[in-house]
Nucleic acid binder design. Structure first.
Lengths: 221, 221
DNA sequence: AAGTCGCCAATTGTCTACAATCTACAAACG
DNA sequence: CGTTTGTAGATTGTAGACAATTGGCGACTT
């Protein structure tokens, strides 16, 4: 009777503009400090200024752009301190998620994590940097989701966006893909064995080293 | 030469509308579930819909209202789970702030906290519930600020807003003002003596009991 | 020459009108 | 009589025009 049809979604121009702009910022295409002139954006996207303005207001409250009255909106600049704070907050949120997940573990969720890690290792061996990054994000996203804590999740989204942006802005030279991928294994192991102290230590170290490496090379504009 | 003059600030209609609406929501004047029709709001505030829409988009990304396309915006409903999550997040953020503050304590900051607590006790003895609430907020705000962690602070603002809203929505019957005020003293003591474990335990308990008391009496709509 | 004033270009802020979409209810159809 | 289809009213979504504000540059003043 009913066959599978793709869901038609009529996204408002505001949402489309928002997604486009956010994606451009997170991918590093729009670099920090870039001016976002409403008229220009409207012309480029072929729409009017109204939905653009609403999208910019949202990006502003997400902390991705900065607006000065009658003067313009720019992509928010990132300082070394910002990056350190972002990673310390990430560590705090993920550690808390881990604590909650391990307090009442679900086997189905564990399987999801295991699948992701295995895929990540495969992608790492194949040298597919895009896939490794996507799966790495997926791993940590899943961990947060598993906590079943919606407020935590919404806070995480904010931090995760900035992490994405930072990762896109640094040129990671010494990126050993296989190493990154395989670093998730012992963590997963500790989680499945219920060794919370060890899992927490591994997770914290994992995040801290990532953050430190990036903060080290950061050059202020 | 230069005398003290009050700063003249020309706030945009968007900002004024935003402040007005946010205040109304946080004070419980606009109850969860209330429909916020753009045309009505515009008429009531004597402005056009454009700035109202932008304000609503901001409130939406702050999680205070909920929008459904072509259907309207309503004040976001709060479930018992929401409240539990808000308070657990509050506990997490404040505990982290405490940890950072006690790692490198500043005597000037300690004095600020002490002043606030003493004022709070005075206000409690005088039965001034408004002042006690304001000073209680001030105490916890100050603690967060003292951490010098801007990302933490921005996350805290989100949570603190919801805490204010929840506090305004419950009718606290058994509110012993003097007790609330004096409960801050041992915490402050532990902080000043550098006893982190004790300070953390007191803070966590302080927040948890507050949250539990509210969540207990919460009646879903 | 230093300072002040006034104008100009660029940009954002606001308003009004119109288009698109949704829900519910009524009408047409088998 | 139940199902489907059309329509009305309300609400949000978008567009385009106009107003307000800012910062900078140049001319004028003393």
């Amino acid at each position: 009777m009913t066959i599978a049809l793709p869901q038609i979604k009529n996204l408002s121009i505001r949402e489309q503009s928002l997604d486009t702009l956010r994606q451009a910022i997170l991918s590093g295409e729009l670099k920090p400090g870039t001016a976002l002139t409403e008229t220009d954006l409207a012309r480029q996207l072929g729409v009017s200024r109204a939905p653009i303005r609403e999208a910019l207001r949202i990006l502003n409250s997400e902390g991705l752009v900065e607006s000065i009255p009658y003067h313009g909106t720019t992509v928010r600049r990132l300082t070394k301190t910002d990056i350190e704070e972002i990673y310390s907050m990430r560590s705090l949120l993920e550690t808390y998620a881990l604590e909650r997940v391990m307090r009442s573990p679900e086997t189905a969720d564990m399987q999801r994590l295991r699948d992701i890690v295995h895929e990540m290792i495969s992608a790492g061996d194949a040298g597919d940097i895009i896939a490794v990054n996507a799966l790495d994000r997926d791993f940590h996203d899943t961990l947060i989701e598993m906590s079943g804590h919606r407020v935590l999740h919404s806070m995480w989204l904010m931090v995760a966006m900035k992490v994405r942006q930072v990762m896109a802005l640094v040129n990671r030279r010494n990126t050993d893909l296989t190493l990154i991928a395989r670093k998730h294994l012992p963590l997963l192991d500790a989680v499945e064995r219920g060794n919370f102290m060890r899992a927490r230590a591994l997770l914290k170290e994992h995040i801290a080293t990532a953050g430190d490496l990036i903060a080290e090379d950061w050059v202020e504009p």
